[in-house]
């Protein structure tokens, strides 16, 4: 890959002095879907957080280049404007702020930052309605406060709805499947698949293979103890489903 959209080189990151990421190397090209799998505590969510700019993580070594820019130097809001989107594992409830208002404020902040014209209320609403149909979202969710009182499934659906509205270049889905029943999982996956195109890259982080039946990745990477210990095609996910993560441990130790 000559110029990948995202290039991670020897990335190390720590939380409260404890090293969680211990040398990640990964290149993601436009249009590609990469799955990151791994057992609990392997550093999956830390990787997602570092890429989105969560400041509770300290990057101790390595570099991340996104669309030719030093991603780690950018503020979270600037990453968003540049096209990075993180679907949260635990979406935050913000009582007092309307769900649609928030989304419009975010979208227009990004457009301003990129020197594009802001979307007026009517155009925005039209777009929102179209995207909501994609996620089979209940109309009332838009009139409520951001994620307030949403069920687990509604929150995840709202994340993908936001993604559909913001149209990122790099979407990072952090355990989007956790807490979803099979019907909700299908709807969410359908929404994600509708957003797959040749320009958009996706990093799908998951503990279970189940999600990858519906969002079929181009590449699968296994994260263990802060390093990628194995990479392969989509069949690697099936192998993991069958054998679990245990068989990779010796390889991890050998690295």
């Amino acid at each position: 890959m000559a110029n990948p959209l995202l290039k991670i080189e020897d990335l190390h990151a720590a939380v409260q002095g404890k090293e969680i990421l211990r040398g990640i190397d990964l290149a993601v090209g436009a249009g590609e879907v990469h799955a990151i799998m791994g057992p609990n505590g392997s550093g999956k969510s830390t990787l997602a957080g570092v890429l989105a700019g969560r400041d509770s993580y300290a990057v101790t070594a390595g570099r991340v280049t996104y669309a030719g820019q030093d991603l780690l130097e950018m503020a979270p809001e600037d990453r968003a404007s540049a096209g990075v989107f993180l679907a949260f594992q635990y979406p935050v409830e913000i009582p007092g702020v309307g769900n649609l208002y928030f989304l419009r404020a975010a979208l227009n902040a990004q457009r301003r930052q990129r020197g594009e014209e802001e979307l007026d209320a009517a155009d925005f609403l039209q777009l929102a309605k179209k995207r909501m149909r994609l996620l089979e979202m209940d109309d009332t969710l838009t009139r409520r406060a951001v994620n307030e009182g949403f069920s687990g499934g509604e929150k995840k659906r709202n994340e993908i709805f936001q993604m559909a509205m913001l149209e990122p270049k790099l979407a990072i889905l952090d355990e989007t499947d956790s807490g979803l029943d099979i019907d909700a999982l299908k709807i969410v996956a359908q929404g994600v698949n509708a957003l797959r195109d040749a320009q958009r890259a996706m990093l799908v982080i998951t503990h279970y293979q189940r999600l990858l039946n519906y969002i079929v990745p181009d590449y699968v990477h296994v994260l263990s103890a802060g390093r990628i210990v194995k990479s392969g095609g989509k069949e690697l996910a099936l192998e993991l489903e069958e054998k679990g993560y245990g068989w990779l441990e010796p390889e991890a130790a050998a690295v």
């Binding site: 404007s81 949260f88 913000i94 702020v97």
Partner: peptide, 20 residues
């Protein structure tokens, strides 16, 4: 962080949360 990760600037995000 949630608001900022969606593109809302740090200062505006803070003010929005106070308003909220």
């Amino acid at each position: 962080f949630y608001l900022r990760s969606r593109g809302v600037g740090a200062e505006m995000a803070r003010h929005l949360l106070i308003f909220a």
